[in-house]
């Protein structure tokens, strides 16, 4: 399974869609991609783990680091991790990552993006 972090848009927000296994070997790629996006000072960032097939403690740690950086920069970070994606959602739940970062089941649960209803 190849790993890939793609810059996408989810619910009107800049997003990083993570494909493959997010673990100690691949986590730095997510950090790098997220830093690049955060450098542009967006109002929000979505990390979409819907197509992610595996998440270990290093992957979880990376999400926490991102959450802290985003918070420091005033960026709202959301993690999309469907409950059906057990290999990813279960560790997040076990670690209780939702205590530090917003974890949603799908993009539909995200509140409307600030820019989308501001016309």
């Amino acid at each position: 399974m190849t790993f890939d972090v793609a810059r996408t848009t989810v619910a009107g927000r800049p997003a990083l869609t993570v494909r493959g296994e997010l673990d100690i070997a691949t986590a730095p790629q997510l950090t790098e991609a997220a830093d690049a996006v955060l450098a542009g000072s967006p109002s929000a960032l979505v990390v979409d783990l819907t197509p992610t097939t595996f998440l270990d403690s290093s992957g979880a740690r990376t999400l926490i680091v991102l959450a802290r950086r985003a918070a420091a920069g005033g960026v709202l970070l959301h993690v999309v991790a469907p409950r059906g994606n057990r290999p990813v959602r279960l560790p997040l739940d076990l670690l209780e990552l939702d205590s530090v970062v917003s974890i949603v089941d799908s993009a539909a649960e995200l509140p409307a993006a600030a820019g989308s209803d501001a016309t």
């Binding site: 926490i64 670690l95 209780e96 205590s99």
Partner: peptide, 12 residues
């Protein structure tokens, strides 16, 4: 009897 991983929150 669970709580978040160590290092997530200042006071868990």
């Amino acid at each position: 009897g669970r709580g978040p991983a160590l290092g997530l929150l200042d006071a868990a």
